[in-house]
Computed example of a mutant assay.
Amino acid sequence: MTPSQFELFMRRLIKMKTPKVVVMLVLLTSWLDMPVQNKAPFQVLEYYAGVARIATLAKFLGLRGAAVDIEYGKHNKPKSERPPMDINSDAGLILCIHLILTSDPALALFLAVVCSTWVPVNRGSTQRSILTPLGCEDFPGVRRANKMMSRSVILMLLAVALGGDFYLENPHNSLICMHPRYVWFMESLMELGIPTYKITFWMRKWGSLSFKHTWIWSISIIISILDAGSLTQKEKNSSISLTTRYVDKHGRKKFKGNSKLK
């Protein structure tokens, strides 16, 4: 990022009413002397990448991309330290911010934020609802998920201020979009006249082995092409099930995730 681009970037952050602590965090990160293997800017970033399908596809298309996931480098760290790419750690967050600061203004940022505490199957334990989207923070898993989404909002904010797009993925009926920080982010974009789009689609239409009804949010209307229509009976019959349905001793119908859910 050139000095003039960085100045424009910071002006946009201020225009978006970014909290001062986030502005300071960005400045401190920009002043760090971090090694850069290749000075060409990143065009695609994939966070919570898993097997990094998107980053791999970007490379195949001739784009420079990078993938970040908590599992990367996890087995090479000392037992006393956190995984180097854990976004909830200080080092992990700084790394994610640094990657955005070394990206092209037309950056495409993909985030498949961990969904386990946000989906209906865990509502009984997390106590999340539309009225209480942050759930019961007495549970460490709920606290970690809330922190993770809050930090993800920072990264999406930076991507937009840079001039790029973000693509946030979560399962259908996830309450992640009700996180107060994300609501604030959407309202900030609205005040600036930047529309946000949401698309619902079946991942079975795109090669997934399960139905996986999915949501994606973005400021790019291009996500509308993901809607490939309703599932056919053949697609339903050939899909694997991620849940086991049963009737409890009281005669109530219930379901739970099976070994294929992860």
Results as ranks from 00 to 15, higher is better:
5 Q>D: 10
7 E>W: 07
14 I>F: 04
21 V>P: 00
26 V>S: 02
28 L>V: 13
29 T>D: 07
35 P>M: 09
37 Q>C: 13
42 F>S: 03
46 E>W: 05
53 R>G: 12
54 I>C: 02
55 A>N: 07
61 L>H: 09
65 G>F: 00
67 A>L: 03
69 D>L: 03
77 K>R: 15
87 I>Q: 08
88 N>M: 06
91 A>R: 12
91 A>P: 03
96 C>K: 09
96 C>Q: 13
97 I>P: 11
99 L>K: 13
101 L>W: 09
105 P>F: 12
115 C>N: 09
118 W>I: 11
122 N>S: 15
127 Q>M: 09
128 R>T: 08
135 G>Y: 05
137 E>I: 14
137 E>F: 00
145 A>Q: 11
154 I>M: 06
155 L>I: 05
156 M>D: 03
157 L>C: 13
160 V>Y: 03
164 G>L: 00
170 N>T: 03
170 N>P: 04
176 I>Q: 11
179 H>A: 06
180 P>Y: 05
187 E>I: 04
187 E>A: 13
188 S>A: 14
207 G>H: 02
215 W>V: 06
225 I>F: 14
225 I>S: 02
231 L>S: 14
233 Q>H: 12
236 K>G: 15
239 S>Q: 10
240 I>D: 07
244 T>H: 13
244 T>L: 10
246 Y>P: 03
261 L>G: 05
262 K>T: 01
